[in-house]
């Protein structure tokens, strides 16, 4: 016997946070902390740093809840966006401190599939989903799709992608630019 996923009202939670109701933040934490930590850890490549980022994210969700505007996007999307940009800003501002050695699993595995070859060690399972983005990504050639997905989830810069692919920086920039343009055309 399985339970249907109960409807969870993210927007009501953010409204309640904006009113200073702490239990709404507890509910968001119970619901999404593991996913947010997964996102932060993927970008920060370190457990303790990822927890720092999720800590900061929940403080920001709490203090900035009143600035959430449902006209601009979904409430669930907003909490992921807050967390992800905190993680990206952290790794960009501390690039040298975060230099990951060549044999780091986290750094090398995800990009192993960027040449379009099967990469069994890649822990990102590419599964076409119901979201519109998946259908549009399907239309990109695999190497470029991989480029977009890993840039987003791993937080790589153009230069990092170029280095890992042993491809000229200009080529990588052009690929990403064209892929983004194709995605925009496809998704509207």
């Amino acid at each position: 016997m399985t339970l249907p996923e109960p409807f969870f009202d993210y927007e009501a939670c953010l409204l309640a946070c904006a009113r200073g109701e702490r239990q709404a933040l507890v509910a968001l934490y119970a619901k999404e902390s593991a996913r947010l930590l997964g996102v932060a850890k993927r970008i920060a490549r370190d457990n303790a740093l990822a927890e720092d980022i999720v800590h900061d994210a929940f403080i920001k969700i709490w203090t900035r809840a009143a600035s959430f505007d449902p006209e601009r996007g979904s409430a669930r999307g907003w909490i992921f966006t807050v967390t992800r940009h905190l993680a990206l800003n952290f790794v960009r501002n501390n690039r040298h401190a975060l230099q990951v050695s060549e044999d780091s699993e986290m750094l090398l595995h995800p990009l192993a599939s960027l040449d379009g070859q099967a990469a069994p060690q890649d822990d990102l399972q590419w599964q076409p989903g119901t979201e519109r983005i998946h259908g549009c990504l399907e239309q990109l050639e695999p190497a470029r799709r991989s480029c977009i997905v890993h840039a987003y989830v791993d937080g790589y810069t153009h230069a990092e992608i170029a280095e890992k692919l042993a491809t000229p920086l200009g080529t990588v920039k052009a690929w990403i630019k064209r892929s983004l343009s194709a995605l925009r055309e496809c998704m509207g």
Binding site: G38, S74, T81, G129, V149, Y152, V153
Partner: peptide, 9 residues
């Protein structure tokens, strides 16, 4: 557009 990609992680 891109936020659903977080669910891949």
């Amino acid at each position: 557009r891109l936020v659903p990609l977080n669910d891949l992680v």
